[in-house]
Nucleic acid binder design. Structure first.
Lengths: 197, 197
DNA sequence: CACAAAGTAGACAGGTCTGTATATTTTATT
DNA sequence: AATAAAATATACAGACCTGTCTACTTTGTG
């Protein structure tokens, strides 16, 4: 899967990466359909033909930006987990430290993956597929962490933790309040302790 | 608040209600910006001027549809709770029965309130305000139910249950799988039991 | 330097969107 | 039947959108 590929199929290009990052920031803030191609180009300072030389369509740009950020975010999570010491439970809870840091950050404007689910509904739309792939990759990591922590029903628990993470994310966005991360963390802690064998 | 008003400020009109219901269904399925006014009009079989005689703008139509559905949904939840017997814990869990029924229904296409949060980001946009008001009204009901069940920290628990509900809703939509309602219910049960005094 | 690749500028086609204006017809009430 | 209210049909303005085309310029590399 492209999420874990070490060597990207598409060669890196400065302008290409700039477009992906700029597009991500704008879509993240305002949603996908609300932001036009021209807005992205203006902010990036890139010509329109450069965009269409790198991407076949706006949807392709969106999906590519999502894939790139997914890889970056997952790497960040892995790093947070790796820096959380050796206790399996602490490593699992470190995901919620990462969540709290994100929801509290000044630049937080909601989860662009969740927004993609709301805006693209066909099921075969590339942004929706990219969103589902990212969330699945995160869930897979949680399954691994739950298993390593020797918890009961790791697959079920991982799904439940995903519900908590995304619920907190969308509520933090909706009410412009990062305190939901605390609720999420305490809930996760309770569930994890209850699942200890 | 208009959510609880018995007598609406705006007189009911058959065409007006038809527009609200049609708009809701289309927005719910496809998102707000993806559906044009003309699509709503065609499906409802109503002239454009009729719409603009009843609503000042598309955003006003959206917000009005959200307010109407919010009232209907909350009434449905109240009814489900009322039919759940006298045990306070069972009444609280009845909310998750309602959730499961919704997520499993053939017509489920995600939560239009959550979609509004993704598509309207200004904070002052009417659809976003309508979404926050609905979610808050639901949360208030959970606080009441938690209090009646004599649970610890009812306000915190209510927020946590909201995270679970919306997390399950968005995951059921994203992965086209209603099984997340089961995860939500078992999680809620565990939390409620842990919060019993 | 020479040459190929990458990027730029600007116009443009064809479509979509919201919202308005106008004149006519239907519906309801008295 | 008369009158007022509601709804309709249709055209249209003005803006925005994605994607294409063409000709020109910059950049990097052998």
């Amino acid at each position: 899967m492209s999420l874990t590929a070490k060597t990207p199929e598409v060669p890196a290009s400065a302008k290409r990466e700039l477009l992906l990052d700029t597009a991500w920031a704008l879509f993240c803030q305002n949603g996908y359909r609300a932001v036009g191609i021209d807005t992205v180009l203006a902010k990036a300072g890139v010509a329109k033909m450069t965009l269409y030389n790198h991407f076949a369509s706006k949807e392709d740009l969106i999906a590519a930006a999502m894939d790139k950020k997914a890889a970056e975010i997952l790497a960040g999570i892995d790093q947070t987990v790796a820096g959380a010491g050796r206790s399996p439970q602490k490593r699992l809870l470190a995901v919620f430290d990462w969540l709290e840091a994100w929801l509290s950050s000044e630049t937080f404007t909601g989860c662009a993956f969740l927004k993609a689910v709301g805006e693209y509904t066909a099921g075969s739309d590339k942004p929706r597929l990219a969103a589902a792939a990212y969330k699945q990759a995160l869930q897979d990591r949680l399954v691994t962490l739950c298993t390593e922590a020797d918890l009961k029903a790791p697959a079920t628990l991982a799904r439940q933790l995903m519900l908590i993470i995304d619920g907190a994310t969308i509520h933090a966005d909706m009410h412009a309040n990062s305190a939901y991360a605390t609720d999420a963390r305490s809930m996760a802690k309770a569930l994890i302790e209850a699942a200890a064998k």
